[in-house]
Design a protein around this nucleic acid. Structure first.
Lengths: 347, 347
DNA sequence: CTGAAAGCGCTTACAG
DNA sequence: CTGAAAGCGCTTACAG
């Protein structure tokens, strides 16, 4: 591959001058500029970003460590992050933690070793020493979606409290009284907050959330299935299950289907996170939608601000309830077109 | 951030020796090793990967340029690629082309500028000059899923021919005779091959594929919707639509639902690519499943082989048909539990 | 406007 | 086993 030296030789100029025209430095003669451009063209020269980074101490790269790429919510988040970053002249390297702290730590380490300019993270846990140290050491960093209390880093996330309140009101109006939740890991903020918001909303209606109705999931589908089976085995199963993310809702659908039961007749279902497929599931799933694209863009802007020495603004955006049919038919509607027999769990 | 010089000073040794222990070079005394380790620990030193890359001319990084991250098939592919790469000691940087040639080219350029050790690509088109030149220049490269004829690069993909044949046999047995396809872009191999396989399989049953039954999509949901609407508006609409990927199948479901029609009664549906949600759609969707994880792993192995100077083996894995209910009930089964009225397109 | 030179943080022959 | 030195490909004060 041609280096800047080759270009300089081809153009009959010094590497300093070549570098200047490549970086649009003002003090270059038109003649020099022309000759350099011609040489660049002739040699198909492309600057080596590695060398440039070593010299300038910036990589124009952002690291994004997310909990699970296979989760459509995070996939969309990653996509919007990349788009906004690209618009601002940055590349992004994604690290998929797969909800595993060691993997998260591996990616944080790798990213830091590569000297990314800033780090966007949606922590899987309360933070590894490496991550906390990086934050303390002043590595530009911002949390997206999930965050770690006590760490002084801007947070960009959505607040689902009002949407959860709307959801519970909706469920209550439909006559449901026994409401359960499939929670995310207690080590994550979203894992805890969604349970708290749910409990609080239940309280508004004089309902409480017994421990038996709090299932411990891990934001992945299998756990949603397992927890739902547990609920169904209860002497008094819940009437509704609220899954704290879309994958656990998928798992809940698996469980219901495996028992030959039906949603919402045997068990109503709602989910945090709205995904496109929810429109076409049987039945369409009522969900809480986050402004995912806006979140990703705001996170990048906050991070780039930090990189440039700014404070990096924290942002909280509201989520909203999208009612579909998985919690029961709204009252005024005519009878469902497929009246299915109400079967009950046999246990 | 501490550099190797700081470590050398702290350990009272030369940077050469520090470098040797960091790289597990055999000729280092135990004493030196101990002192270096202690210094590394004391300073929380981490080698600068940028400097190392510049010196060694390798980044231990693979580039992956895929057509669309939001497509679950590619998300899963990306995930398996990253896993296998990590197991082999490589990181991966993903570039999302979003089915846009210019964006694909942007990512190829950026990746090459960063001097990735090898490139994995699922081309959106027939290849940009930059990509073709990189291949010719000997940049280690392998195509995954889609490929470019005439370019001498290993190809790792799945062959859906047999599965498509099985699908058509299934449709034929169900009594369907008017079969249509929502094709991918003709600029892609998968766009063309799936149509060819479909036409060929139809031929086996004495059926042909009229132009009116070939809808031009772009592998994204909206095009599936648009094409399906066109089919539904035909004087003689097809009885079945085969979407060449899962997103266009989603779009087809949108179109059918928007008209108040039902699958499979009004229009049967099958898709290339199986996704988890297909189990829970209304009705569950019959699909052709690719061995996505195996594809990703094989692609990485081929690429790493090329990087190490090997030939890089091309691999073709079979896809298989997964029958569900979106094309109609299999004959022996009892009546569907929700007999819905057969409505027809009004046009 | 242009060039020679230093230096970014490493690795690695080459001597000793 | 250890160190001094060169060099990877750039950028950027410093002189001129």
């Amino acid at each position: 591959m041609a280096s800047i030296k080759d270009v300089a030789a081809e153009a009959g100029l010094s590497v300093a001058t070549v570098s200047r025209v490549l970086n649009d430095h003002p003090s270059v003669s038109d003649d020099a500029r022309r000759r350099v451009m011609a040489a660049v063209e002739a040699l198909s020269y492309r600057p080596n970003a590695v060398a440039r980074s070593l010299r300038t101490d910036q990589t124009r790269t952002l690291g994004l460590v997310i909990s699970d790429v296979m989760n459509p919510y995070f996939t969309e988040l990653a996509r919007s992050v990349e788009e906004e970053a690209r618009a601002l002249g940055y590349s992004v390297i994604i690290g998929n933690a797969d909800e595993r702290p060691e993997l998260q730590d591996h990616h944080v380490t790798t990213l830091l070793d590569r000297r990314i300019d800033g780090l966007l993270v949606s922590p899987t846990d309360r933070g590894s020493p490496r991550m906390l140290e990086a934050a303390r050491a002043g590595t530009p960093m911002v949390f997206v979606d999930r965050w770690i209390p006590g760490v002084d880093v801007p947070v960009v996330r959505s607040d689902g409290r009002d949407a959860v309140r709307d959801l519970v009101a909706h469920l209550h109006a439909l006559g449901h009284r026994r409401l359960a939740i499939i929670a995310g890991p207690a080590a994550t903020t979203t894992g805890r907050e969604r349970v708290d918001a749910f409990r609080e909303a239940l309280g508004d209606h004089g309902l409480d959330l017994p421990d038996a109705y709090i299932g411990q999931g891990d934001f992945q589908a299998d756990s949603g299935r397992r927890v739902t089976e547990g609920f169904l085995d209860l002497a008094e199963p819940p009437e509704v299950v609220f899954a704290a993310d879309n994958l656990m809702a998928l798992g809940a659908l698996d469980a219901v289907r495996a028992r030959g039961l039906r949603v919402p007749d045997d068990l109503a279902l709602a989910a945090f996170d709205d995904v496109r497929w929810f429109v076409h599931t049987d039945p369409p799933v009522t969900a809480i939608a986050q402004p995912t694209g806006a979140l990703g863009r705001a996170a990048v802007r906050a991070l780039v601000d930090r990189i440039e020495g700014g404070p990096g603004e924290s942002v909280t955006l509201p989520a909203r309830l999208v009612v579909r049919r998985s919690c029961g038919e709204p009252a005024p509607t005519t009878q469902s077109p497929h009246p299915s027999p109400v079967r009950r769990s046999t246990s």
